[in-house]
Amino acid sequence: MHYIQQPQAIEAKSFDIIGDIIAQTRPDYCFASPLHEAIIKRVIHTTADFDWLDILWFSPDVLPRLSAALSQPCTLYTDTTMALSGINKTA
């Protein structure tokens, strides 16, 4: 058996599996945008819970506003070290 050892490759394979499961179990599911897809798949990856396809809701303008805010220097607050570890500090 071949084991993937590189973290980025493991993550990429996990996202491929998530996409395959969505395509198989929810063939009519449509993400509102590529950004919505990336966020929802990240939540599913983190929780292993596909119910997020139905329960995660976004305010109409939240993603453009969030993107605009994060494109500038800012301070981010998080209540978990896991969330903090996922933030790319150099970007």
Rank of each mutant, 00 (worst) to 15 (best):
51 D>E: 14
8 Q>T: 11
84 L>D: 02
66 L>Y: 02
26 R>W: 15
42 R>M: 12
38 A>V: 10
53 L>G: 05
81 T>K: 09
2 H>E: 12
53 L>F: 02
44 I>E: 01
86 G>Q: 11
65 R>G: 02
45 H>M: 05
85 S>N: 10
44 I>P: 00
88 N>E: 06
18 I>Q: 01
70 L>I: 01
68 A>C: 06
29 Y>F: 15
67 S>M: 11
65 R>H: 12
24 Q>C: 06
48 A>Q: 13
76 L>Q: 02
66 L>C: 09
15 F>V: 04
24 Q>D: 13
69 A>V: 08
76 L>S: 01
61 D>A: 07
62 V>L: 09
49 D>S: 13
82 M>C: 02
11 E>Q: 14
4 I>M: 11
55 I>Q: 08
68 A>G: 12
84 L>I: 06
52 W>F: 12
9 A>N: 09
78 T>S: 13
57 W>I: 13
58 F>M: 05
90 T>M: 02
47 T>W: 08
78 T>G: 10
56 L>D: 03
49 D>Q: 10
42 R>I: 00
73 P>W: 02
16 D>K: 08
27 P>E: 08
60 P>Y: 10
78 T>D: 01
38 A>R: 14
27 P>L: 04
16 D>E: 15
6 Q>F: 14
23 A>I: 00
11 E>G: 01
75 T>R: 09
